[in-house]
Amino acid sequence: MTRSGSPSGPGSGSPSLVLELRDVTVPGRGADRLAGVSLQLRAGERVALLGASGAGKSTLLAVANGLLQPSGGELFWEGAPPARSQRLRQRQRARIGTLWQDLRLIEELSVQQNLNAARLAEWGWPRALRNLLQPLETAANAAALRQVDLDPALLPQSVTALSGGQRQRLAIARLLRQQPTLLLADEPLAHLDPRLAAELLTLLLRQATAPRALLLSLHRPDLVSGFDRVLALRAGRLVLDAPPAALDAALIQSLYGAESMPALAEPR
């Protein structure tokens, strides 16, 4: 199951390694959903993950944020394997921020309480309860909103009152409040109109500076230009790990097959 002695062992002189997968396998019905995937993500790196539907992008992200336990292979967060003790494990997970496609805001709470929900890993019950009576840490929350170009006057609003774009930004602001080292995003741009998608991507790329790293799955190969690296999955296997410039029409055709989208396939 383990392939020990690999060249870049966890923590071996590579303190900036944020995420490492070694030979990770996740079985599925019939074919494996992930088959022997290995990858490394270093602080400051912004990596796009491409692949057709069902290629294993979501599975890979679920393994990376600890939601899914791989059946084989190894996983390291900042050089350490997933902790056995629940407390340590929670501490590890607090350093992984996930941007969900459906955002997963808490609809019944205010913007500020939603932002503070990202701090719950650090807070105990007394603070968590107080936050529901009188939202806490207004200054930090206002700063987070400004970072995503939202008006701090929104803080006391209910999230149900926000527009679609504002909700996207709020979700990113919540990520910032969590102060993670690893940013994961599963198709955050799906279902967004092109202008909004571009804005959001810019925002995300702007936040992902060292010591943070960003791994983002994408359905659209045309949006990879701002990334440092592009990974591509096909049928659960990693088939590409290259700078965005290496992406050409033939490669995209091989990735997406019949599903390829000529209008969007404009590699540079």
Binding site: R93, A94, T98, I106, A118
Partner: peptide, 25 residues
């Protein structure tokens, strides 16, 4: 349990995640 799972993934303990994530709704 979307909101609850999101909180758990962000390192929140199981009780607080249930409380904020699921009981809210």
């Amino acid at each position: 349990g979307g909101a609850e799972a999101a909180l758990r993934c962000a390192g929140c303990g199981p009780r607080l995640a249930l409380f904020y994530g699921r009981f809210s709704g």
